[in-house]
Design a protein around this nucleic acid. Structure first.
Length: 863
RNA sequence: GCGAGAGUGGCGGAAUGGCAGACGCGCUGGACUUAGGAUCCAGUCCGCCUUUGGCGGAUGGGGGUUCAAGUCCCCCCUCUCGCACCA
């Protein structure tokens, strides 16, 4: 038998029982309160890690708790099983991505089951399975019909090592997150989702997401990056065209003394043509094209530029202003051109100083006599307009409105809103993803695959080399197809979809996983959606969570679902961290490579005990859940993850802490085993009013019900819920079962009630053990079919309480009083107290503050 | 630079404006033991006083509000995360 208690046998026994009884299968029952609880599904990398264990343990407590509370709970699990690692692994292990993926899923499914998570496995989804991805293709085509999918050629992040485009979040400091290869910009055709069509709704919708953590909402707001301003036309001197700029500070228009274009701006070279500047401009543009984009965009990159030789007219001052080109203007934001107001914009100021361009003050701080000749830096704040014709003297905020009105009246410009959010490029030049269902015909152009031909099956026989383009290009039977429209020879699209597409709607599919007529079955999806509680890592704050919101709105507009937002409440759990050991010679070391004196076993040098960092293989500070399972079992692993820190905070791993959680469970086993005979006999209940010796224990049990219920329900404070359970356990352990003859019934009743309550309250945290002990207590049926215990507020409230007596805010005495003692009684008792009287000699009482049920504070006038 | 969050014993962490340090880990002592790395019991913020006991100090630093501040307000410091030439 395993140390402490036989968790291996117990856990296997109950996992089998739950599976056989279908305990966690969820069906739509319209008359019941539903609760859709979801944790972010994993990428099947091979084995689960502690981050998964923590994420899913948090979810499972809620799932089990809510079921006991009477909710109809949907708690599904699936696999984010498309993606590049499968192709890398295929090369490394000489296997097929499908086999590697499916083997991983099979293994990880077993691991999750061994953790005892209460999923409805009948609803399992595998992204890489045609039964799932066919509906991804279907949705792609529907969105295409709606104009929400389009193809364009543009500059994208390209990783030479991965041989594919990377999403923005996969670029960290200009390097590929996976292999550290510098990411390059590459002009490439690809498919895009028009997420920008929903920019405003994605932004405003955040205001209604009361159940989302503020940081996540802030990050999404920043990402969407809404700017309200105006587009203004600046006519070019001696030409027909004009340059259009975007600004949020039209109040500073009178201070615009030059213009700046991005090197990529379509007019950039044209303006210089035939001028003395042409060669210089040509050279500058060529150089900028070569320059690394990430570096160019970095804030600390020096501003540099060239004069185009051309002039424009400031439409308000009517003055000629030179047009420049510079690296600090970005082609993709606004119109790729700006008006430069050096007096009121720091970037423009620096540029003007560097190249000796004129500065003209447009807005000055209220009540100052700022002069542009004295400017040491731009004044970017609000203030009063100067040098601004009829707007001079106006408040800058009002002037923004007045000037944009004027621009619109005069036909010079118009109100405009710009977003930083860009359309979502979903083309991946890789094999292991969902095929984009498009066909190119020379005669008919781009033709969608007809719905009846879905799914486009990912061919099995491919050569994955990580060289050249997509492996799919070299699969003849795949690429060459007849055009669905004219029947002539045509070519299939060989890009596959970003895996974030799969995860953008998997939560919908869970509601109706077998649906054959569409991605979802309407009645079922509408019963379950939205997800009431979503749980996952904060690293998805912007991408997955933004994409999923976008998809939900787009699918809603296809009339397939009725909700606006996919996730009502969101919990972002912290990372699982552990200290690192680093040897000067051997780098990061495993704990077993370090001896008791903290020296490297390889070279004997003392290792540096590093910071507490997120568990990662490269830092050699990971703990494998598998080891935990074999040493302590699933209940201990879960319990520790929940006890060591509140869910949203980082969790610091501690082997001794795990040991402590295990000890706690062992203690409960001992308590019950020691009294096994007691529970075998019938126990008659005693009303609370008649409880004397058992009163305190009974009350403590009731108080624990209240605390645990509130801790789980309100704030997911599982750590404090567990500590309350430990206190109850301590109390039970101290309780004396033996006593006078006439007390025996009462003692046995209070004791068994407390033990039973303990098991019920602990069951969501340590389900296997509680199920087992519940059975040993002789209770029939699964503990998870028992209702969550309730409490009587009158019992919870003690009839006597300790009142703190303070003198001038310092505790000087404590008195036991009736809980319902009124202010007068409390004041008198406090003033009559001997210790208090000792302190009060020589002092005059200025005031007595009485807080019922809490304290009395006597404020004196000093000695 | 901007934004968000955090700073409490040796450690993880508790505290509707009302006894700071619950609970756990670790540590100390004791009991039971052939043994203890099992279990049980007691102790464990710091300083001071002669004890039972008591006094003083203590939640990054400094001010303030209040009868009362870890908690509210202002200033500063440190750390973590996110964004960062976004016009």
């Amino acid at each position: 038998m395993a140390r402490g208690y036989d968790f291996k046998a117990i856990e296997a026994k109950w996992q089998r029982a739950w599976e056989e009884s279908g305990a966690f299968a969820a069906t739509e029952e319209p008359e019941r309160r539903k609760f859709y609880l979801l944790e972010m599904y994993p990428y099947p990398s091979g084995r689960i890690h502690m981050g998964h264990v923590r994420n899913y343990a948090i979810g499972d407590v809620l799932a089990r708790f809510l079921r006991m509370r009477g909710y109809n709970v949907l708690h599904p699990m699936g696999w984010d099983s498309f993606g590049l690692p499968a192709e890398n692994a295929a090369i490394e292990h000489r296997t097929h991505p499908a086999k590697w993926t499916n083997d991983n899923i099979a293994y990880m499914r077993i691991q999750l089951k061994r953790m005892g998570f209460s999923y409805d496995w009948r609803r399992e989804i595998t992204c890489s399975d045609p039964s799932y991805y066919r509906w991804g293709q279907w949705l792609f085509l529907k969105l295409y019909e709606k104009g929400l999918v389009y193809k364009k050629s543009t500059a994208v992040n390209w990783c030479e090592m991965c041989r594919t485009v990377l999403a923005n979040e996969q670029v960290e400091g200009g390097l590929c997150w996976r292999d550290g290869t510098p990411v390059v910009q590459k002009e490439l055709p690809g498919w895009f989702f028009r997420i920008t069509a929903y920019a405003e709704e994605l932004l405003s919708g955040l205001d209604n997401l009361a159940g989302w953590p503020e940081p996540v909402k802030v990050m999404q707001r920043n990402w969407i990056g809404k700017s309200v301003g105006a587009e203004v036309r600046f006519p070019l001197v001696d030409r027909q065209e004009a340059l259009t700029i975007f600004t949020t500070r039209q109040d500073t228009l009178f201070g615009a003394t030059f213009m700046v274009l991005a090197p990529e701006h379509p007019h950039a070279l044209a303006l210089a043509q035939g001028t003395a500047q042409e060669q210089q401009v040509r050279g500058f543009i060529a150089r900028m094209k070569l320059e690394d984009r990430i570096k160019r965009v970095a804030a600390d990159t020096a501003k540099e530029g060239v004069f185009t030789g051309a002039y424009a007219i400031n439409p308000l001052t009517r003055r000629r202003i030179p047009v420049w080109i510079s690296n600090f203007v970005l082609p993709e934001y606004g119109t790729g051109a700006i008006m430069a107001v050096p007096s009121n914009d720091q970037r423009d100021f620096e540029f003007a100083k560097k190249y000796g361009l004129p500065i003209r003050l447009a807005v000055k701080p209220v009540g100052t006599d700022l002069d542009e000749r004295d400017l040491q830096q731009a004044y970017e704040g609000e203030g009063v307009l100067v040098n601004s014709s009829l707007f001079t003297g106006m408040d800058s905020q009002q002037a923004r409105e007045a000037i944009v009105d004027f621009l619109e009246r005069e036909g010079i410009g118009k109100r405009t809103v710009h977003y930083r959010l860009r359309d979502w490029g979903i083309s991946r030049q890789r094999y292991w993803g969902n095929p984009i269902p498009m066909i190119y015909c020379e005669g008919c152009g781009t033709v969608p695959v007809p719905y009846q031909d879905l799914p486009v099956i990912l061919p099995h026989d491919v050569q994955i080399t990580m060289k050249g383009g997509s492996p799919l290009q070299k699969v003849p039977g795949y690429v060459d197809v007849p055009c669905p429209r004219c029947g002539g020879p045509a070519r299939r699209e060989t890009d596959t979809m970003d895996t974030f597409v799969d995860s953008s709607w998997y939560f919908l599919r869970f509601t109706s996983p077998g649906a054959e007529d569409g991605p979802v079955a309407p009645a079922r999806v509408n019963y379950w959606m939205p997800v009431d509680q979503y749980i996952g890592g904060i690293e998805h704050a912007v991408l997955h969570l933004l994409y999923a919101r976008f998809f939900t709105k787009a699918v809603r507009d296809l009339s397939l679902i009725a909700v606006d937002e996919p996730f009502s409440r969101l919990l972002t759990q912290g990372m699982v961290c552990k200290e690192t050991y680093r040897c000067a010679e051997h780098g990061f070391r495993l704990p077993e490579e370090v001896d008791a004196e903290r020296c490297c076993r390889a070279c004997g040098r003392s290792v540096q005990v590093g910071r507490i960092e997120k568990m990662s293989k490269s830092k050699k500070n990971v703990v494998d859940p598998e080891d935990l399972l074999s040493q302590y079992g699933a209940d201990t692993a879960r319990l520790f993850c929940l006890f060591a820190a509140p869910p949203e905070r980082d969790l610091e791993w501690s082997d001794q802490g795990v040991e402590g959680s295990f000890r706690f469970l062992c203690r409960i086993v001992r308590i019950i085993e020691d009294q096994e005979a007691l529970f075998k006999e019938p126990i008659s209940s005693v009303p609370f009013q008649r409880l004397i010796v058992g009163r305190a224990l009974y009350r403590r049990a009731q108080q624990t019900i209240k605390r645990v219920t509130e801790d789980i329900e309100d704030e997911f404070h599982f750590n404090t819920a567990i500590s309350a359970l430990m206190e109850l356990t301590n109390e039970i352990g101290r309780f004396e079962l033996k006593g006078a003859e006439d007390e025996v019934d009462e003692r046995r009743f209070a004791y068994s009630y407390a033990v039973e309550t303990l098991l019920l309250l602990l069951s969501p945290f340590a389900p296997h053990l509680c199920e087992e002990l519940w059975e040993r207590l002789g209770r029939s049926g699964s503990i998870f079919q028992a209702p969550w215990p309730g409490y009587d507020p009158a019992v919870v409230a003690a009839e006597e309480i300790v009142v703190v007596i303070q003198i001038d805010g310092k505790v000087r005495s404590r008195l036991v009083m009736a809980a319902d003692a009124d202010e007068t009684a409390m004041r008198e008792a406090a003033l009559a107290d001997e210790r208090v009287r000792g302190w009060l000699q020589e002092r005059s009482i200025r005031k007595v503050v009485v807080i019922p049920k809490k304290l009395v504070n006597i404020v004196t006038g000093g000695i």
